[in-house]
């Protein structure tokens, strides 16, 4: 059931996203999702769409900035390195 997926706490996801960006530099949403999938070795089940909500939350708090950029195949939203001083 979906219950398992939602057990990942909001704050945990935000932290994971932040950590990914800190380690790898600017990434778009798809890249972050892949990285998290990879790191958790497919143990963590989550709706990838929630990564975007997480990005939005971090952006609102000033933890990261966003810009539009072109990836290999299409246009996607890229997220830059977090400035750790903010937030």
């Amino acid at each position: 059931m979906a219950a398992k997926k939602s057990e990942v706490l909001q704050g945990t996801l935000d932290l994971m996203v932040l950590k990914t960006l800190h380690g790898l530099g600017p990434l778009h949403g798809f890249g972050i999702a892949r990285r998290i999938e990879q790191l958790s070795e497919n143990v963590l089940q989550m709706n990838e769409g929630t990564v975007y909500t997480s990005l939005l939350r971090l952006q609102q708090r000033g933890g990261i900035t966003a810009r539009w950029g072109v990836s290999e195949r299409t246009i996607a939203k890229q997220s830059s390195t977090p400035s750790l001083s903010a937030g």
């Binding site: 949403g29 798809f30 999702a33 990838e48 769409g49 975007y52 195949r73 299409t74 246009i75 996607a76």
Partner: peptide
């Protein structure tokens, strides 16, 4: 963006 994400994931 979601549509793009879906496309990329399917390709993956």
């Amino acid at each position: 963006e979601l549509a793009d994400h879906f496309e990329l994931l399917t390709t993956e």
